[in-house]
């Protein structure tokens, strides 16, 4: 057999077979079409297996067609196939060897904190907040990541000084001079309107001639969220 093959290879190895390249090309195009449309169908119907089969299953079929018919591996000496196969086996060994570590984020005695945080941050970013906000470190992170509500935000940030009830009796507020404003005091509301409240929350009390102890919080909120915060503060206003 080897004599025969050497003979063949002298002349190029095309002698023994005739591939209809155009036909292969057409089949590849059809498969390609399916691999684009399939995942769309999978997305619409919510059937993940359609996506998996059409996108990845078909990739293997296409690769096989190209390797066998265009690269002529099907007619190549067996040793070339073994050469490529041993590469593939090495590769699979490598992947199988590291997969447990890469894909798991914890084991019996260890925990990949960084990976877990990355997942958390990423998922928060995906649910509508910009990555920058989601990546901001510190105690505020949880507030931002858990979806916005003015009440929650007030409870977690403002209440430390202003008190949960807006009376200016928060734990951290007691030591402040001037004391944090009490939002339930009718006097406080004389001459204060919504626009001013928005300005104060965004730019700090210093922006309206008040104390720098009331810091600017604008970086935390979108315009829409700022208005929700102002409305929440306004809701403490006693009815006259």
């Amino acid at each position: 057999m080897s004599e025969n093959n050497e003979q063949r290879d002298e002349h190029g190895h095309d002698d023994g077979h005739h591939v209809n390249y155009f036909k292969i090309y057409l089949i590849l195009l059809v498969l390609f079409g399916i691999s684009v449309i399939g995942p769309e169908v999978g997305a619409v119907t919510g059937l993940r297996w359609i996506t998996l089969i059409t996108a990845f299953g078909i990739a293997f079929v296409k690769a096989r067609l190209v390797v066998n018919n265009f690269m002529h591996l099907a007619w190549e000496q067996r040793i070339a196939k073994w050469l490529l196969a041993s590469s593939l086996i090495l590769l699979l060994l490598f992947v199988a060897g590291v997969a447990p570590d890469v894909m798991n984020h914890e084991g019996n005695n260890w925990e990949n904190v960084a990976a877990k945080q990355a997942v958390e941050r990423g998922l928060a970013a995906a649910s509508g907040y910009s990555e920058e906000e989601a990546e901001s470190e510190g105690p505020l992170e949880g507030v931002i990541a858990s979806g916005f509500s003015a009440q929650n935000s007030f409870g977690q940030i403002c209440a430390t000084c202003h008190g949960v009830g807006g009376e200016g009796d928060g734990a951290a507020g007691a030591a402040l001079d001037p004391a944090p404003a009490s939002f339930i005091d009718p006097v406080f509301w004389q001459g204060r309107d919504r626009d001013r409240i928005i300005t104060v929350i965004r730019d700090g009390a210093a922006a309206v001639g008040g104390s720098a102890l009331m810091a600017p919080w604008g970086a935390l909120y979108t315009d829409d969220q700022l208005e929700q915060m102002a409305d929440y503060v306004m809701s403490f206003r006693p009815n006259q």
Binding site: F94, V95, V98, V102, A115, R121, G122, L123
Partner: peptide, 15 residues
């Protein structure tokens, strides 16, 4: 292979 393993371990990459 490295990409695939990370991709499966990180659902947030979908975004």
């Amino acid at each position: 292979g490295a990409y695939l393993m990370h991709r499966i371990g990180h659902p947030e990459w979908a975004e």
